[in-house]
């Protein structure tokens, strides 16, 4: 878990609840410094502000280390909201303030639904889930285009909101804000 900025403690507690229920050994820990990453098999990049998280990733040296592990296929990644933006390969309104981690073959548009007034909750269908999932969208991005082996897992209308490629998972909503643990469970099974 990258604990730099955003909804970190919420992801930590969701993930640890999943560990408690599962047979799998392991635990979720906070990654606050460069050296913390070495012990991790997987990272969650939380929701927050993508410009802020990107800046701290670069300044702390974490950006370089995560990129290297992506190139060696040596890490599982989940990105929510701002994390989804950072895991993508392309950004529609590209800015020098954000350096993408380029894990998934996706193009992302930030704040695609509008401002906070337009933030919403909605029951969505996720591929592989037997019942709908209550997704919370906060100034959310959307995935505007996918290519390569990337697979769409969920959409809202015509907009893609969740995608997977290899052991990378990106979604524009916030599974850490609700008590439904299915997405954290799904990610654990991907690792």
């Amino acid at each position: 878990m990258v604990s730099l900025q955003g909804a970190v403690s919420e992801h930590l507690s969701s993930m640890n609840r999943v560990f408690q229920k599962s047979e799998m050994k392991g635990q979720a820990v906070l990654v606050r410094q460069l050296r913390d990453i070495d012990a991790c098999d997987a990272l969650i990049i939380p929701g927050g502000e993508s410009t802020t998280i990107s800046r701290i990733l670069i300044n702390s040296g974490m950006y370089k280390v995560i990129r290297e592990r992506i190139m060696h296929d040596d890490i599982a990644l989940m990105g929510t909201c701002a994390g989804c933006v950072l895991l993508g390969k392309e950004l529609i309104d590209s800015t020098t303030d954000i350096k993408l981690l380029e894990a998934l073959d996706i193009q992302v548009e930030r704040n695609a639904f509008g401002r906070q007034k337009q933030s919403f909750e909605k029951q969505i269908d996720i591929k592989g889930f037997s019942t709908p999932y209550n997704a919370v969208f906060i100034r959310a991005p959307v995935i505007t285009r996918i290519w390569g082996s990337c697979e769409v897992l969920a959409s809202v209308g015509t907009k893609i909101v969740m995608a997977r490629q290899k052991n990378y998972l990106a979604m524009s909503f916030h599974p850490e804000l609700t008590s439904d643990l299915r997405i954290h469970q799904y990610f654990l099974e991907m690792i």
Binding site: G6, V8, G48, K117, Q118, E121, I138, H174
Partner: peptide, 23 residues
Amino acid sequence: DLSKLRHGTDLIKRGFSKMQKGG
């Protein structure tokens, strides 16, 4: 239709604040 969705719930309002944490 974006206008028919649930907006402005406590979850969304408090969730927005949570995204600011550590900032």
